[in-house]
């Protein structure tokens, strides 16, 4: 369970998160929507401790992410993250991209790590690209590689930061399909997304962020059907 309490985050003088309270249960798929600059991506970075916070707390399975004594590297193994810019490691093959962290972070042997990597690459449909370098992969394939890389750490949660925003339109589908597959398998997911179709069809709940505030959260039918907040309705009217 991820529990976020009164979370406040500043970049210098600019407040980007203004007191967020949010609980994500195991097995839930939460989509976070909202305009650029509303703090959605920053929220993800605060959850896995890539960004420090100024007030409040983020607790993952009982561990406070931002507490001094927390072993953040251990905690991050539970929190897989996929970035907007897919960030595959260009000097490693697809297989090495996926096998590296299990080996050096979790201490798996080379052959174990290789097995894990092959399994996850098969999972995302890249089993024919094991020895390809990222430069030889399309954007969609690189993003699926990034998903496989995160999954290889056997995370409890997956955080998706606009995983499809930087892709050519014709490549968005394959990545969304992979995310759908994960959701069906019961993965707990927080997806910051601009894909309203995905948010509506796949999520258990949808949260709408507006200028650093979580304006509204609820099941997709509520957000897309009868949003209570004026801001939410306006945003959705503009997107569609």
């Amino acid at each position: 369970m991820i529990e976020i309490r009164s979370l406040e985050k500043y970049f210098g003088a600019l407040q980007v998160l203004k007191g967020i309270d949010l609980t994500v249960e195991k097995g839930e798929v939460l989509s976070v929507i909202g305009a650029s600059g509303s703090g959605k991506s920053t929220l993800l970075y605060c959850i896995n401790g890539l960004e420090p916070i100024q007030k409040g707390s983020v607790v993952v399975d009982g561990t406070n992410v931002h507490a001094k004594g927390t072993d953040i590297n251990k905690l991050r193994q539970k929190l897989g993250m996929v970035f907007q810019q897919w960030n595959s490691f260009p000097h490693l093959t697809a297989l090495e991209n996926v096998a590296l962290a299990p080996r050096i972070v979790k201490g798996k042997s080379r052959s174990e790590a290789r097995d894990i990597a092959e399994k996850q690459l098969l999972h995302v449909g890249l089993d024919d690209k094991l020895n390809a370098y990222p430069s030889a992969l399309s954007g969609g394939q690189q993003q699926r590689l990034a998903i496989a890389r995160a999954l290889a750490m056997e995370p409890t949660y997956m955080l998706f930061d606009e995983a499809t925003s930087a892709l050519d339109p014709e490549l968005v589908g394959e990545v969304l399909d992979t995310m759908r597959l994960l959701a069906e398998e019961g993965m707990t997911m927080i997806c910051v997304t601009h894909e309203m179709g995905f948010a509506r069809d796949v999520s258990d709940r949808v949260a709408y962020f507006h200028q650093g505030v979580m304006e509204e959260i609820g099941p997709p039918e509520q957000i897309f059907g009868e949003a209570k907040s004026e801001h939410t309705r306006k945003f959705l009217a503009n997107v569609r």
């Binding site: 890539l50 590297n73 993250m81 970035f83 490691f89 972070v105 995160a150």
Partner: peptide
Amino acid sequence: IPDTQLRAARSLGMTAWQAHTRI
């Protein structure tokens, strides 16, 4: 090298040392 490479490495649980030496 884009900052995001370091972030991606750290998000996998690598230490700063591992992220620098390996990535």
